[in-house]
Each structure stands twice: as structure tokens, then as C-alpha cells.
Design a protein around this nucleic acid. Structure first.
Length: 228
DNA sequence: ACATTAAGTGATT
DNA sequence: AATCACTTAATGT
């Protein structure tokens, strides 16, 4: 299990100009101006490093995240320390489970880990309900997120039910490439195996196949996705 | 140089 | 597809 560094390591920069730019860039076309302004007022900006735990199980949800940069892995584990990755959050996304939990005022049912260094705005959850009534664009945004997440969840379930590991691995890699904005993925076979809850040996074999078929190239701790 | 960690492989279930 | 046992290769101290 990854170590818990949590919020202590976060750098908090309020009223940064860059924050506004990035907010406009990734959410500007979705949300109305008044809302964007309110997000800047009420939200706090944070950065997380790779591997930081953003939200852990049973933690009280106080903020909802709006991702500006980077990628976040959202997962559940069972009684053992087996992980199941539910979905990845990329820029322009927000965490649907957060909304789920705070609507019902529940504690976190999931664990969110920063997959790369990432950069996000945290908005206190009380505003998310208020904004649902106040802003149409917020409502659409939330609905859209639900739809997207739901589809990704279906994907995960398909993977489990039909056991098509190769396909799951491929979409996993594509997700990584998309989230990192580059074709080099610095991740070990072991970590992939944990994410897809299978064993390292199996992943190694599948990756070897992909390498032989010219889909990827790999060196220690690195996978390069070719011909996109 | 030695220990540690990542990756490759054959055999078995 | 999973597990075991073992090898080889890359990296850190």
C-alpha cells in the first residue's frame, strides 16, 4: 500500500493568476462566467505529487475536486489489500463519487490517489448543492460527469465479468497515455497488475506480446506506447 | 561489490 | 489466467 502523505505536503496558492487561466481553459466552455468567478472565490488551489493520497476511505468529504492538470486514480479495495480501479480522472473532470457521498452526507467509499503530479481546485461541498439550483451549467456538468463515470464503470465490470485482460490492459495503457499527455508511461508491471488486480507475471507476458507486435516498447520501469 | 527491485520464462494447475 | 520457482538484467548504496 502507498504511504500516506496527505494534505501536509500540499502547496496552497490562493488567487493565483495561473489558476484562473487553467480554469478557463478546461472548464470555461462548460460553465458560465458567474460560476467560474464563484469557483475562484470559494475554491482553494492545491498541488499533489505522484502517489499522494487525496481522499482515503471513511474520510469525511469536505471538498470536491476540479482537476486542472494531472491524473487521479479512483479505486476501491476489499478486505485483503486487493485494489480495483474504478476510473481515472483527467483534466476537466470531477470526482463523481465525491458528489455521491456528499449528497448523502456519507464518508468516502473510495480512495483517490494522485497518479501523476497533479493540480486541482478544491471547492467546499456545501457549494455544490447550492450551485445545482443556481447555475444551469453546473447542473449539466454534474449530469455529464455522472454519465461519463457510469460508462467507465460499465467498462470495468465488463472486464471483470468477461475476463478479457488483454483489452483491459490496452485501455489501461491508453488511459495512461491520455492522462499524461505523453506516450512514455513510467510504471512498473507490478503496479499495473495491482491496478487490474491480476499478477505481475501475467502482465509481463501480455506486455511482452504487445512489444513483439510493435504496439509498445519497454525498458525498466517505462512503457512507450507506439503508433497511436 | 553487493543488495534490491524489475522483468522474463518454463512448468504446473 | 494464476501460481511457483528460478533466472537475468537494471539500479541503488
Amino acid at each position: 500500500m502507498p504511504k500516506v502523505y496527505i494534505l501536509l505536503l500540499c502547496v496552497r496558492i490562493i488567487f493565483s493568476r495561473r489558476m484562473k487561466e487553467m480554469l478557463d481553459q478546461h472548464y470555461g466552455y462548460l460553465l458560465e462566467d458567474d460560476l467560474l468567478k464563484e469557483i475562484l472565490e470559494k475554491g482553494k488551489e492545491f498541488t499533489f505529487s505522484k502517489g499522494d493520497i487525496i481522499i482515503d476511505y471513511d474520510q469525511k468529504i469536505e471538498y470536491m475536486p476540479l482537476l486542472l492538470e494531472g491524473a487521479i486514480k479512483v479505486l476501491r479495495t476489499n478486505e485483503k489489500d486487493q485494489e480495483l480501479v474504478l476510473y481515472f480522472l483527467e483534466q476537466g473532470d470531477t470526482c463523481t463519487m465525491t458528489m455521491n457521498c456528499c449528497m448523502g452526507e456519507l464518508n468516502s467509499e473510495i480512495c483517490a490517489i494522485s497518479e501523476t503530479d497533479s493540480h486541482l481546485i478544491l471547492v467546499p461541498v456545501i457549494y455544490m448543492k447550492k450551485w445545482l439550483k443556481k447555475y444551469d451549467s453546473w447542473m449539466s456538468f454534474v449530469m455529464m460527469s455522472y454519465q461519463n463515470r457510469f460508462n467507465e464503470l460499465l467498462w470495468s465490470i465488463d472486464g471483470l465479468a468477461f475476463g478479457n485482460l488483454n483489452d483491459r490492459l490496452l485501455t489501461y495503457l491508453k488511459d495512461q497515455v491520455y492522462a499524461r499527455h505523453k506516450n512514455d508511461i513510467d510504471i512498473s508491471h507490478e503496479q499495473i497488475a495491482i491496478d487490474l488486480n491480476t499478477s505481475r507475471v501475467v502482465i509481463s507476458r501480455l506486455l511482452k506480446n504487445l512489444e513483439n507486435n510493435g504496439v509498445i516498447k519497454q525498458t525498466r520501469g517505462m512503457i512507450e506506447f507506439l503508433n497511436i
